[in-house]
């Protein structure tokens, strides 16, 4: 979907168009994510926590973005919002041309199923199910027939080089293998975005590298990848880094300029 086709159904304000136009420096690319003034507040026992205080973010198809920030910066909340697990109190969120911020629970579930592939820090595989069945799961909820599910799940597992581990349960797999199962599960329904939350948080550094190489390959193949992390060396794999602080975007850099700034930012991020 091109920028032009997005415009009309969205009914964007002139201001919004300016933001989008600013972000859309590469003409002809599709907009996957457009947020405008997203606010999210929690009531924590009488005390109001303002996790997001107005986030404007636009992400194009095929981008490989890292979202960074110290704990409490709101990056988890932003991640949940982008992943349609949570809805903002105020502001708009457009995912692939659909206004998500006002959707019902079931509509959000459908969007999560079709548009988003999650990769979690703790893998979040079903412990009693085989790798194959874990990968099948999103297709079950998409209403895909059993044979088709198995075929596509095998294909996805083959993509992450786990074709010989399909019938293993998570506890029979190493951490890196588990995360690759999770990646296969995230990819199996051909989502618009692959959303990874600290994907290497539970892995040692060599396995981390292995997983990052998988992401790299996927990004090269044209998969949109958004990754939340607090580790600068992991974020360095991404081609764009968004840094959140106190619920707003503190910086948003393409790779070239980010690499130069990394040295300056690193101490604060730790």
């Amino acid at each position: 979907m091109s920028y032009e086709t997005v415009e009309a159904p969205l009914g964007m304000t002139a201001e919004r168009q300016a933001v989008v136009a600013e972000a859309g420096q590469a003409p002809g690319k599709d907009w996957v994510i457009v947020t405008r003034g997203i606010k999210r507040e929690y009531d924590m026992g009488g005390e109001v926590v303002r996790a997001l205080r107005g986030v404007d973010l636009a992400i194009m198809r095929n981008e490989y973005v890292a979202i960074m920030g110290p704990s409490g910066s709101g990056k988890s909340t932003l991640m949940n919002t982008i992943g349609c697990l949570d809805t903002p109190n105020a502001g708009e969120y457009w995912l692939n041309g659909q206004q998500v911020s006002t959707m019902t629970d079931d509509a959000l579930a459908r969007v999560r199923n079709k548009e988003i592939g999650f990769v979690f820090q703790t893998f979040n595989l079903l412990p009693r199910a085989t790798a194959l069945h874990n990968v099948e799961l999103p297709l079950v909820y998409a209403g895909v027939s059993s044979d088709e599910r198995k075929r596509r799940a095998r294909e996805a597992l083959t993509r992450v080089n786990l074709e010989d581990r399909m019938d293993h349960r998570p506890n029979e797999l190493s951490g890196g293998q588990r995360q690759r199962v999770a990646i296969a599960r995230a990819l199996v329904n051909n989502p618009s975005i692959l959303l990874a939350d600290e994907p290497t948080g539970n892995l040692d550094s060599s396995t981390s590298e292995e997983i990052m190489r998988v992401f790299e390959t996927l990004a090269d193949q044209g998969q949109t990848v958004i990754m939340v992390t607090h580790e600068p060396d992991i974020a360095a794999h991404a081609r764009r880094v968004v840094v959140l602080r106190d619920g707003v975007i503190a910086s948003d850099d393409r790779k070239s300029s980010f690499v130069e700034k990394l040295g300056i930012l690193a101490p604060t991020l730790k």
């Binding site: 992943g83 697990l85 629970d105 079931d106 579930a109 459908r110 999560r112 199923n113 079709k114 999650f118 979040n124 595989l125 079903l126 799961l137 999103p138 909820y141 998409a142 599960r185 329904n189």
Partner: peptide
Amino acid sequence: EIGIRKALGAKRRD
């Protein structure tokens, strides 16, 4: 498990 299923697209009905 319910959280995982919901994240993967299970509706309330599911």
